[in-house]
Design a protein around this nucleic acid. Structure first.
Length: 1034
DNA sequence: CTACACAAAGTTTTT
DNA sequence: CTTTGTGTAG
């Protein structure tokens, strides 16, 4: 009883604090009510007090009240607030998200919803995997078919389309029909009709090319739609459901099963809905179904604010607010008293939103009225040159707030549009030792520590099934920060191996690392450490099958002293959280996958990576004493004294991630982006209680200009915003350089001069080494000087097999007289078998088919022409050539001799459709002083021919693309070479060789995509494919 | 107006 | 890799 009185007192006290409109909302418990609640107007308080009021009046019990929220966090916040006011009774009130409510309905009625087995929530990765299998099984004639089986890009688009089909309740057969109609309609569409005469065409003619392209796009969509039924079937087969299924299933059951619906209608007599503006169509349908018994007399209470509708992209619609008004004729109450922000902030927010065309604000407009007692200062907009300057300056300001103004870090938030913006800020904050908490999904899978653990797992698995054949992975692993072999020792090992026959298993990295003699003769400084590491890996591989995956990971942690390493670093807490996130993810996964093996895990993790999905970062240290980093979206509902909104720039508005749909169908939020953006920043601004700073930078990282978001540009003359120009001082530039040095990076040291001189003794410049050095000197150092093992790719295996097959075929003198397709096909197959390890099974099959059919056609088209050559010589090796003292070498695919000179032929096995082809073939000019790489290759060959004088003079250089392009042509490019071309490349040769002799390898090219340059920055090494051409080292 | 070459971009979030 | 926007020449 005492307790009860306590809560009654509490209610009275809280109720008395409310303003007139709030009280009205709390007290109106019968019939539909719609509360328009702007930001900071106390809606959660109103919702909870209203529930208390319903119970106080005794019209029903706590279990007859259903409170629906949009998000889990909203539901949690609601629960907390309610317990405060109601005490234990609060737990009897049903507080659900729409999804958990539907889940409850399904599980309360297993027989009705025909739940066979325990259903499991489909993660995005499950859906991707299902779609990928469907794509793998495609017929060669399907428009979506790709012979390299790389469907990464299509996967996303297909997933997006399938999701929309469910969200929008689309009928795939109807879409299909619309496409058929559209294809006919397009023939008379203005867009595809010539509007005037020209040489080639007449006014009124069909633009065939453009039309065909459009039709192909629509047909592709049809091919995707064809996969949909199989997708749905496979989801059922695996007992998987997705979030849309939850709601859709309940809707369709409520529609046909009146008695089921009635049971819930009777149970829940009082409905309350929070964040109503964020409900989507199907969620609203649930509400309509639950209330269709009483309609305008329903006790339904919704709280929403059209200006804060930011989930449009996933189906939420402001129209729901209007429709609610029409259907339920509710009493509308507007809350316009704001208890959070200063008036300046509210005025600014209003300026942001006032130009919105589509607003639902109820009767009143204008800024909310502030009740804040805080000092009212104007908000600031700062423009910086670069994002680095911006984040650095914002971090400085935060540091000052905490140290000088003694602001509690939890009162500070940095808000941004995209999660990836967070990464740069976290680096700046880490540098200043400012602790932060982040909303979620810092990409743990890309974190260096996780990367290395994944690589180790992958290596153990591969080495177990395919021993001594996974060099490059092992080489990468040695660079892990927790492995105490110095970077110099690794380089010495690589250098000592470069002259060995690497295809001999006895020379494999794994074997050599266990050999004391080898290590000592390589001048390795810490032989003992290397032997120890090698020994640990031997045991891990040997015992692979003796442990569960979890135990194996623990063993890796323990044996390689990962935890010990982490605790020795400055940011050990963050690193522990990263490792813990990974470990927790694996644990959860092992529950989902029965008897999970390492190969299951490795495959799963690689899929995550390939699909660009994340392992969520789980923080265990809480948010205490930390500033908050959050996306604008997830900042909703929260408030901070100091808010920094950064990187407020206009986004590139490309959506290449959707298939073309016929008229009448469109992906959500296609045409309302500007409005959505406005509301999003409105939400951001209204998070601030006292001080707000907006900022953006005018230049992208690549130096190109960028503009701020639209609504900022409209605020040029706002009286509520002070414009400032951010300056870069020297300290800031310095710190933006510092962030590039990760603590996880091993100390970097170049090989000693005598080693490099040793390298130069046998080095001769080939076109690939020249190219490599010009691309990136650091890459040259690693790939050519150290010769680190390269990764394999199917493209490389295919290229080598094809080159080798063509060589053999040309060698046979009968070949050119008579083309025997059967023998040729067999030749290709036998060559591909040699490079078997470059392919997965599926890849091997489709590359083989592709290679056989394309090459046969290629040869049939060309071999007559080749017949007129006096002599054809494949695989010509130029050795011991010199130009101005530079040793040159080269391996040419083929030289055809004619009476008037030689034709040098180079086969290309890659795609000739590529955009960059033209650039690669282009000679050097003022704009591009280097010139294209294919151009340089041919010029280099002509220089070799000139210095060697073995063959007749140069006549022509030809690139043959042996795979047909989209237009089904085999592209053939002839390069004409001038004396000027030769002199340019000659000077490139001399310059480059001089730089190599001078040991100029650092700093590399500094391009962000360069693996070696980024290795120096981050300590993570990710080896990609080897060069196509293998060089001689004898 | 049309064709072609070239560069840029690939969300945001929740369940 | 694919789509889309921009720039340029005809």
């Amino acid at each position: 009883m005492e307790n009860r009185n306590h809560y009654e007192e509490l209610f009275k006290k809280e109720f008395n604090k409310l303003n007139y409109q709030q009280k009205e909302a709390v007290e109106t418990i019968e019939n539909p009510v719609m509360v328009i609640a702007g930001p900071g107007t106390g809606k959660t308080q109103v919702l909870s007090l209203r529930i208390a009021q319903i119970l106080k009046e005794g019209v029903c019990d706590a279990e007859n009240i259903l409170c629906l929220t949009y998000s889990e966090s909203g539901s949690l916040a609601m629960q907390k607030r309610l317990s405060k006011i109601l005490g234990p009774t609060a737990s009897q009130v049903s507080i659900h998200t729409f999804h958990s409510f539907c889940n409850r309905v399904i599980y309360e009625n297993p027989s009705i919803f025909k739940i066979r087995n325990e259903l499991e929530l489909a993660e995005t990765i499950d859906q991707y995997e299902i779609i990928e299998v469907l794509l793998f099984n495609l017929d060669e004639s399907n428009l979506l078919y790709k012979h390299d089986r790389n469907y990464t890009y299509d996967l996303k688009k297909i997933h997006h389309l399938f999701k929309s089909i469910k969200e929008e309740y689309w009928d795939i057969y109807k879409i299909n029909e619309s496409i058929n109609k559209e294809i006919i309609n397009l023939k008379t569409d203005d867009r595809f009709i010539y509007k005037r005469n020209s040489k080639e065409y007449k006014k009124g003619d069909l633009k065939q090319k453009a039309y065909d392209k459009e039709v192909e796009q629509l047909r592709k969509t049809q091919s995707v739609l064809e996969l949909y039924p199989a997708y749905v079937k496979e989801m059922k087969q695996r007992d998987l459901y997705d979030f849309n299924d939850l709601i859709l299933n309940v809707i369709s059951e409520f529609q046909i099963n009146t008695s089921l619906k009635s049971r819930y209608q009777e149970k829940f007599q009082y409905l309350l809905v929070d964040e109503f503006q964020d409900t989507n169509g199907s969620q609203f349908s649930i509400l309509k179904l639950l209330t269709d018994l009483w309609k305008e007399e329903s006790n339904i209470f919704v709280v929403g604010d059209g200006d804060q509708a930011i989930y449009r992209f996933q189906g939420a619609n402001i129209a729901n607010l209007r429709e609610f008004e029409q259907i339920f004729k509710p009493k509308v109450i507007e809350l316009r008293e704001n208890y959070r922000s200063t008036q300046s902030i509210l005025n600014l927010a209003e300026e942001f939103i006032q130009d919105s065309k589509e607003r639902f604000t109820g009767r009143n407009t204008g800024a909310l009225h502030s009740n804040s007692l805080a000092e009212d200062t104007k908000s600031i907009l700062i423009t910086y040159d670069t994002a680095n300057a911006e984040y650095s300056d914002v971090s400085d300001k935060i540091e000052l707030l905490i140290s000088n103004d003694k602001v509690d870090p939890v009162d500070i938030a940095v808000l941004f549009r995209n999660n990836k913006d967070a990464e740069l800020i976290t680096k700046e904050l880490s540098n200043r030792n400012i602790p932060f908490s982040i909303s979620k999904e810092l990409n743990v899978i890309e974190h260096p520590l996780v990367h290395f653990i994944m690589k180790i797992l992958e290596y153990i698995e591969m080495e177990y099934s395919n021993p001594l054949d996974n060099e490059y992975t092992f080489y990468e692993i040695l660079h892990a920060p927790f492995i105490k072999i110095s970077a110099l020792d690794i380089a010495l090992i690589a250098f000592a191996r470069r002259k060995l026959n690497l295809s001999d298993p006895n020379n494999s990295l794994r074997k050599r690392l266990s050999s004391k003699e080898f290590l000592e003769s390589s001048n390795v400084s810490d032989v003992k450490e290397v032997l120890e590491v090698a020994q640990i890996f031997e045991i891990l591989i040997k015992e692979k099958n003796d442990h569960t995956v979890q135990k194996l990971i623990e063993n890796i942690f323990y044996q390689l002293k990962v935890i010990h390493f982490i605790t020795s670093t400055d940011n050990s807490l963050e690193l522990m959280e990263v490792i813990n996130s990974f470990y927790e993810y694996v644990k959860a996964l092992s529950i989902r996958i029965d008897n999970m093996t390492i190969s299951d895990l490795v495959q799963h993790l690689n899929n995550l990576k390939n699909y660009n999905l994340n392992i969520p970062f789980v923080s265990v240290s809480g948010t205490k004493d930390k500033i908050r980093l959050s996306t604008l979206h997830s900042a909703k509902g929260l408030e901070y004294k100091h808010v920094f909104i950064v990187n407020a720039i206009e986004k590139g508005r490309k959506n290449s991630n959707s298939f073309k749909l016929p008229p009448g169908y469109s992906f959500r939020n296609d045409d309302t982006e500007e409005e959505d953006e406005r509301r999003l920043y409105y939400v951001g601004i209204t998070r601030a209680k006292e001080k707000l700073q907006l900022s953006y930078s005018t230049k992208k990282s690549n130096g190109k200009d960028q503009k701020p978001i639209d609504c900022i540009r409209n605020l040029e003359n706002s009286e509520f915003l002070i414009h400032k120009q951010g300056k870069i001082n020297e300290k800031q530039t310095l710190s933006s350089l510092e962030i590039k040095l990760s603590p996880l990076r091993k100390k970097y040291e170049l090989l000693s001069d005598d080693k490099i001189e040793q390298f130069l003794e046998t080095f001769s410049l080939s076109v690939t080494s020249l190219e490599k050095y010009l691309q990136c000197p650091l890459a040259f150092y690693y790939e050519k000087v150290l010769r680190v093992p390269g990764a394999r790719s199917p493209y490389m295996g295919f290229g080598r097999a094809i080159h080798s097959a063509l060589e053999d075929w040309v060698k046979n003198s009968d070949s050119l007289k008579n083309f025997d397709s059967k023998i040729f096909r067999e030749l290709i197959e036998s060559k591909m078998r040699i490079y078997r390890s470059h392919f997965t099974k599926e890849q091997f099959d489709s590359f083989l088919i592709k290679g056989q059919s394309e090459l046969s056609r290629f040869i049939q088209i060309n071999y007559h022409e080749w017949g007129s050559a006096l002599k054809i010589e494949p695989e010509v090796n130029f050795k011991n050539q010199f130009y101005k003292g530079v040793p040159l070498s080269g391996k040419l695919d083929r030289i055809d001799e004619y009476s008037d000179g030689i034709v040098v032929i180079d086969y290309k096995t890659g795609n000739s459709d590529s955009d960059s082809l033209g650039k690669k073939l282009k000679a050097a000019n003022d704009k591009n002083q280097l010139g294209g790489e294919y151009w340089r290759q041919m010029v280099f060959y002509s220089i070799l021919n000139e210095t060697s004088k073995i063959y007749r003079p140069w006549k022509e250089g030809i690139f043959y693309f042996v795979i047909s392009n989209k237009k089904d042509e085999f592209v053939k490019k002839s390069i004409s070479i001038t004396e000027e071309d030769k002199s340019i490349v000659k000077s490139q040769i001399v310059d480059t060789y001089a730089k190599i002799v001078n040991k100029e390898f650092t700093p590399g090219c500094q391009k962000p995509e360069c693996i070696w340059c980024s290795y120096l920055e981050t300590g993570v090494i990710r080896i990609i494919e080897e060069d196509l051409e293998e060089e001689d080292y004898d």
